[in-house]
C-alpha cells in the first residue's frame, strides 16, 4: 500500500480541500450545508482508507465510527436545514 498511490486517499484529500473551500466561498446556507457534508464525507473516506491497512482484515473500529458518523451527519444536517427554513421564514416576515 505504501508503494503506490491510493486513489481513495487522494479522493479523500481532495474532498476535504473542496469542502473547506466551498464552506468559505459559498454564501447560500444550503450550499454551505452541502459543503460541510462533502468535507465530512472526505473525513469518513480518510478513516476507512486507514482502516483498510490493518493486516488481517479491515479495522472494525473506524467502520463503526463512520457508521455512527453518517447517522450523526444526517441528523445534524436535518437540524441545520430546520434552521435554514426558519431563517428564510423570518426574512420573509421582515419583507412584508
Amino acid at each position: 500500500m505504501m508503494a503506490g498511490l491510493d486513489v481513495y486517499a487522494l479522493a479523500a484529500a481532495a474532498l476535504i480541500g473542496l469542502g473547506f473551500f466551498g464552506l468559505i466561498v459559498q454564501m447560500h446556507p444550503l450550499k454551505r450545508l452541502l459543503a460541510v457534508n462533502v468535507l465530512g464525507n472526505g473525513v469518513f473516506l480518510a478513516l476507512i482508507v486507514i482502516a483498510r491497512r490493518l493486516p488481517g482484515g479491515p479495522d472494525p473500529v473506524p467502520h463503526a465510527m463512520v457508521l455512527t458518523g453518517i447517522v450523526i451527519a444526517v441528523s445534524a444536517t436535518a437540524f441545520g436545514l430546520a434552521l435554514v427554513r426558519r431563517q428564510a421564514r423570518d426574512e420573509e416576515g421582515d419583507d412584508e
Binding site: 498511490l5 486517499a9 476535504i16 480541500g17 473542496l18 468559505i24 480518510a46 482508507v49
Partner: peptide, 17 residues
C-alpha cells in the same frame, strides 16, 4: 479559501500516504 483548501488537501494526502 482556495489556497487554504489546496494546502489542506495536499497535507491530508501526504499524511494518508
Amino acid at each position: 479559501a482556495a489556497g487554504g483548501g489546496m494546502v489542506l488537501a495536499v497535507l491530508v494526502g501526504i499524511a494518508l500516504h
